[in-house]
Write a protein that binds this DNA or RNA. Sequence first.
DNA 1: CGTCTATTTGAATGTACTCAAAAGCGGTGG
DNA 2: CCACCGCTTTTGAGTACATTCAAATAGACG
Lengths: 190, 190
Amino acid sequence: MDSLKNHVLKLVQASDEALDLFASKLQRIAISKKRFLLQPGTQVQHEYFVLKGCLKTYYLDKKGNEHIIQFAIENWWLGDFDAFYNGGTGKFFIEALEDSELLAIDYNSLQEVFEKEPVFERYFRILITGAFIAQRRRILDGLSLKTKGRYLQFCEAYPNIETRVPNYQIANYLGVSAENLSRVRRKLKS
Amino acid sequence: MDSLKNHVLKLVQASDEALDLFASKLQRIAISKKRFLLQPGTQVQHEYFVLKGCLKTYYLDKKGNEHIIQFAIENWWLGDFDAFYNGGTGKFFIEALEDSELLAIDYNSLQEVFEKEPVFERYFRILITGAFIAQRRRILDGLSLKTKGRYLQFCEAYPNIETRVPNYQIANYLGVSAENLSRVRRKLKS
DNA sequence: CGTCTATTTGAATGTACTCAAAAGCGGTGG
DNA sequence: CCACCGCTTTTGAGTACATTCAAATAGACG
């Protein structure tokens, strides 16, 4: 709980009352490794903040191939945002890669927080703006770099994740095959 | 001016006073085809809303290759957001592809609007959340689709842009060569 | 009509992918 | 403690897809 409060306070100046209101809307969730937090085709009522653990968000295409959209570790928000904000059913799986603890907030509660404490409007604006910029960077890397550069960039940007997730999943996230990433990493050592 | 007001009112309920405050901070800019709105290495003071015209945001890598991050047409916001929000100098070129008219707001004015009229905090939160979701979709398409699928997806998502921008620029945006896109389009016709 | 730019086509090259198999690594139970 | 099992990484070989370079064609605009 505290880690979320700290996260909020890093981005905005929130009063104790505002923080308390927010906290009162949060639900604590535990999820164990290999379990699913979300699956496609279901209603998405919540957004999640990671207190502890590691998860991945991925899409399963028609051919059954997995495509990892995002990893999330401590102090990251995650969710199926399109379905959460715009309604409809989700498209993504979210699966725990480690036993994890989360905080969840549901849509109506979040709207209520926004109404009563606009500082959270600001918090999420700043948060999502940062995420947008990071994603733009990822797109740029995808356009301008080959496997080697993308991998190095990933390791630099997510040093904490790199050590916790198997390489074939990182390859998937980068959009390359595990074999190719393996060969590239061999070259990097020499 | 009205098109921005309408855009705001589509996403939030803003009072006339709020809209007037916002409007008072906006500066009208005209830029002609092939001219640059931003160039890398400079301070980024403004964010822009397109009243009329078409522009592209791109990155020039060390080898001199252009990588198009975004196209913007009527009713789109654009800018070098990292530099704008986090300071430092910009990384991107923004160039007009047609004679264009824009509205610009500078950082301090925007902060003032946020302070005085939190409804704009909400407006930009919703706006950027939508942009984030669209970008996530683009990343997913990049991971899961080949040239053909990406092109079809692009045409569907940006029907207005597809007709106004030369194909080789669309190829660039998609991360494929113009020749490859040309061959793929030929197949699509038959 | 001529010039400049954009698109298309061809041919050779290359990078990454797929499939298949071997080697490495960790954990569990005998 | 070792043997085995499952999972991950590595290696090899053949293939597919996109790239590059070069040239021809098509369009747009003065």
